[in-house]
Amino acid sequence: MAEQMITRDLKVSFGDHQAVKGVDMEIRPRAVTAIIGPSGCGKTTFLRALNRMHDHTPSARVSGEVLLGDRDIYGDGVDPVELRIRVGMVFQRPNPFPTMSIRDNITFAPKRHGLAKGKALDDLVERVLRQAALWDEVKDRLGASAVGLSGGQQQRLCIARALAVEPRVLLMDEPASALDPTATQRIEDLIYELKKDYTIVIVTHNMQQAARVSDYTAFFYMGLLVEFGETDGLFTNPREERTEAYITGRFG
């Protein structure tokens, strides 16, 4: 199920400003890849290029290749809507749909994609809520508003919602930065569980978090990929001086 992603000379610019300046990176399946770097280094911009979210920003220009499996997602005949079923995304702030119940938040997309209905849909709701470690907390109030949940619960609901369309890759943009430490811990545990089945890319401001959850780490600086490697190696023995400066807290 999990697929690898490869970027080749990926560039993203907004008007005159180039935010990502040619990045080559291999994202391994069934592993967590963390992207770290100071604010404005292009890490979120890079992440959003992986499921073509920039298509909705008129000033954004993307060039280079992004391979999902062996297909360029910016190539001819790729429907961005279909692509996003395979490459899901979880955002910085929990963003459940306020007009929908907990259950409807999850079933909204699968219903539209014709993935399941009736009993199968109920099973899907239970399965993804269990995967997101939220089932026990909400199983008795699936019809209640999603906005009534706590921030951490909302974020797990958003993860469950993303899993419900059965993606191959899950992109997470600082998924725990708006949450308290306990909720953060739960999200991190969840990421650890999910990497058995998915390819996960997580952008984070928090280096401890990157060290805890990821197998590979990429350090971005000024729109460039400065260093990329196994997390253990990158944190204990960085090859680049800028990486070392950043992870030891000398800038950023």
Partner: peptide, 23 residues
Amino acid sequence: VPGHQREASFALGVSEAATTLRV
């Protein structure tokens, strides 16, 4: 309606039309 609501829907592979009408 905040932009993140539209993004949440787009990120689930929902089309623009359905996002507008349903979200």
